[in-house]
Simulated assay, not measured.
Amino acid sequence: MDFIDYYSVLGIDKKSTSEAIKKAYRKLARKYHPDLNPNDKDAEQKFKEINEANAVLSDATNREKYDKYGKDWKHAEEFERNRQSRASSQSHGSENFSESDYSDFFESMFGGGFSGHSQGRQVKFKGPDYNAELQLDIRDIYVTHKRTLTVDGKNIRLTIPAGVKDGQVIKIKGQGGPGVNGGPKGDLFLRFSISNHTVFKQDGNNLHTTVDLSLYEALLGGEVTIDTFDGKAKLKVKPETQNGTRVKLKGKGFPMYKKEGQFGDLYVTFRVVLPTKLTDQEKDLFHELSKLRTL
Rank of each mutant, 00 (worst) to 15 (best):
F200L: 06
Q122H: 13
L28V: 11
K248L: 00
L215S: 14
S108K: 15
D104Y: 01
D230G: 02
K248Q: 06
R81K: 14
V224H: 00
K22V: 03
V237N: 02
V268F: 03
G204R: 06
K234L: 10
G120K: 06
D72N: 10
G11K: 05
G174W: 08
Y216W: 07
T148P: 02
D72E: 09
I21Q: 07
T210F: 03
G112A: 07
K248A: 03
F189A: 08
E78P: 07
I138H: 11
A87T: 15
F47L: 02
K154A: 11
M256H: 09
G112M: 03
G11A: 05
I194E: 08
P34M: 13
A29V: 13
F192K: 11
Q281R: 10
P38N: 03
L235D: 01
V56Y: 03
G11I: 07
L149K: 05
D104G: 02
G153H: 13
F125D: 00
M109T: 09
A29W: 06
K232Y: 12
S18D: 15
N155G: 01
L278N: 04
A20D: 11
L295H: 02
G251L: 07
A218Q: 02
Y69M: 03
Y130I: 06
Y7P: 05
E99W: 10
R83H: 09
E223A: 07
I156T: 09
I226T: 04
I194W: 04
P255A: 10
Q202I: 13
T279P: 08
I226S: 03
P161L: 01
R63N: 01
Q90M: 14
A43K: 09
K283S: 06
R147Y: 04
D152G: 04
T228N: 00
P255G: 09
E107P: 00
N39A: 05
D265C: 09
I141K: 00
L266P: 06
V56S: 03
G127W: 08
G111W: 05
D212I: 05
K22T: 06
Y216A: 13
Q84M: 11
F270P: 00
E77V: 09
F97S: 07
E64N: 12
R26N: 14
K283M: 11
P178Q: 11
S214P: 01
R271S: 15
E80Y: 08
K68A: 07
S85M: 15
A43G: 07
K232L: 12
L220V: 04
K232S: 12
K48I: 03
H145I: 06
H287Y: 15
Y6E: 05
K46M: 13
D265W: 12
Y216L: 10
L149W: 08
K23R: 11
S16F: 14
V273S: 05
K15S: 12
E78L: 10
G177I: 02
E99I: 13
K15A: 10
M256E: 15
L36W: 08
L292C: 01
L274A: 11
Q242Y: 01
Q168T: 08
K65G: 01
G70N: 12
P275L: 06
L219W: 00
N196Q: 12
H33E: 14
E282G: 08
K185F: 00
F125V: 03
N181Q: 14
N196W: 08
E64Q: 15
D129T: 11
R63E: 02
F189P: 09
